[in-house]
Design a binder for these strands. Structure first.
Lengths: 245, 245
DNA sequence: CGTTCGATTGAGGAAGATCAATTAATGTGG
DNA sequence: CCACATTAATTGATCTTCCTCAATCGAACG
C-alpha cells in the first residue's frame, strides 16, 4: 500500500484535467501558429497602458501580474503558470491595465488579438477555449479575494504555497520541492501582509513540519504533503475562529 | 449656470461610456430576445452548483454574488448593477460557482448559453460584447483585491461607497442620495471587516462631512460630492501610511 | 406596546504592523 | 578565492489597528 502518492490515485478523475492544458496549447499552436518568445526572470512582456495588440499564453515559466493605481500603490495581483493567459484584463479598454513580468525563465506565445478574434468566430473550440480561460480567471480571482478576507495571515501563506504546489502538480511538474521565485516582500505584497509576517508564518509552518526548508537557501521549500497544507488552513479556521460571520 | 450637475460636463468624454450600457442592452435584446424575469430583494437567480444553462444580464436592480467554500466560509464577492453580467464564472466548469441574489427589485435577462455562443460566432459585435464584459470583470476583481490588500478599513468603506455611487452615476441614475441595500454585516463581509468596524467607519465619514445620513434611517446615505470620498481615501494613504511598501 | 433585528458606541484584547538589530545569502572587485 | 558590500531573511520588542464582547439605542413589525 503506497501512501506517499497523492497524485493520480484516481486516474479517471485526474486524466481530463491533466490533458486539458497540453490539448489547449496544441490547439492554439496549430490554429494560430503564434510567435514564440523566450523570457528570463525580470523581463516584462507588457506594461500597464500599452496598447493591447496581443494576448499571451504561457508555454513555460512563471509570471507575476502587477497592478498599479494612480496614487502609486503597487501590488502583485496574480501568478501565472503554464497554460495560463495573460492580458485578458486589457480587452475591455483596449489597453493593458497591469504589468506582466516573468519571474522565471520561460516561453510565452503571442496571439494577435485581431487574429484570435477572427479565428474564434470560425472555430467554436477556440472560442470555448478563450471563454473558459477568462471564466477560470474570474472564478480564481474571487477565491483569492475570499482568502484575503476570511483567512488569517498564517493560513494565507499556507494557502499560497498550496496553490503554487497545486498549480505545478496539475501541470505535471515536480511539486515535492518548489522554488519560490519571489522575495518575502513580494509574497507579502501579494498576500496583503508585511514581509516580517510572511517570514514568521513560514517559520511556523516549518516548525509544525507542514513544510521544510532545503539546504540551499530558504527560498526553496519542500512540501512533503500538499494535503497537510490544506489541513493547516482548516485548523486555523476551526479553533474558535468564525472570523467575520 | 447650473452647478449641481457633475455628469456630462464634458459631453465628448462622457458620451461613449454613457451610451455603452444602453447600446449593449439593445443589441442583446434585439439579437437574442432574452426571456425577462422580474426579481425582488432576496430572490436568488442561481445557486452554486447549479448547471450553467444561462448567463444573465441585469436590466435593472442590484445583485450580490456570494461565494462559499467547502469549509463553510461565505462571502459577498461582487455587486452587480444594470448592464452587468452574472454567471460568467461558471462557464469554465459548466456549473455556477456562486450564488447570485437580488438585493433590490429589478429585471434580469436570461441568455441561453448555447444560443449566446451560436450568436457570438455569427456576430462579431456580440462576441466583443461578451469578451469585454468578462474582461471588465477581471480588471475590476483585481482592483477590488488591491483595495482589500492596500487600504485600511476606513478607506475601504469610503471606496465602497465611491464605487457604488460611481456605478450609479455611470448608469445615469440618481447618485446624490443612495440606499444601501445591505446590512452593516453584509458590507463588512464584503469588505473583510466586522460590522462594528463598518459602523464606526461610516460614523467617522459622517463626522468629517464626507457623507451624511438622511432623516429616514441610517441605511440611506447622502453623498454630496463623490470626489470627497476619493479624497478621503487618498488622505488615509498619504499621512505616513505607506502600508505594505 | 412589546419584540425583534439592525445599528451604534465603548472597553479590552489579539493579530499583525512597525521599528530595530542580527544573521544569512548574494554579488563584486581585488 | 577571499574580503567586503549589498540585499534578503529572521527574530524580537513595541505599538496600532481592528476584532471581540457587551451594553444601549433605534426602527420596523406584529
Amino acid at each position: 500500500m503506497t501512501h506517499a502518492e497523492p497524485i493520480a490515485t484516481n486516474p479517471r478523475a485526474a486524466a481530463p484535467a491533466a490533458r486539458a492544458i497540453p490539448d489547449a496549447l496544441r490547439l492554439l499552436s496549430e490554429t494560430l501558429e503564434p510567435e514564440r518568445r523566450l523570457v528570463r526572470a525580470g523581463d516584462p512582456i507588457y506594461r500597464a497602458g500599452d496598447r493591447l495588440g496581443c494576448l499571451y499564453v504561457l508555454n513555460s515559466g512563471v509570471f507575476k501580474v502587477v497592478n498599479l493605481t494612480a496614487d502609486g500603490r503597487e501590488q502583485v495581483v496574480a501568478l501565472k503558470f503554464k497554460g495560463d493567459w495573460l492580458g485578458l484584463d486589457g480587452i475591455a479598454g483596449g489597453r493593458h491595465t497591469c504589468d506582466a513580468v516573468a519571474i522565471d525563465t520561460g516561453e510565452v506565445w503571442m496571439l494577435r488579438y485581431g487574429a484570435l478574434l477572427d479565428a474564434a468566430q470560425r472555430r467554436p473550440e477556440l472560442l470555448q477555449l478563450l471563454l473558459q480561460a477568462m471564466s477560470r480567471e474570474i472564478a480564481h480571482d474571487r477565491d483569492a479575494l475570499m482568502s484575503m478576507c476570511t483567512l488569517p495571515a498564517d493560513a494565507r501563506v499556507a494557502e499560497f504555497l498550496r496553490y503554487w504546489a497545486d498549480a505545478l502538480e496539475q501541470r505535471g511538474l515536480r511539486t515535492e520541492q518548489i522554488t519560490l521565485r519571489m522575495t518575502r516582500a513580494e509574497i507579502g505584497n501579494y498576500l496583503g501582509m508585511t514581509l516580517e509576517t510572511v517570514s514568521r508564518a513560514l517559520s511556523r509552518l516549518a516548525r509544525d513540519n507542514v513544510i521544510a526548508f532545503c539546504e540551499r537557501g530558504r527560498r526553496e521549500v519542500r512540501i512533503p504533503n500538499i494535503a497537510a497544507l490544506h489541513g493547516f488552513v482548516q485548523r486555523s479556521l476551526t479553533p474558535a475562529s468564525p472570523m467575520l460571520q
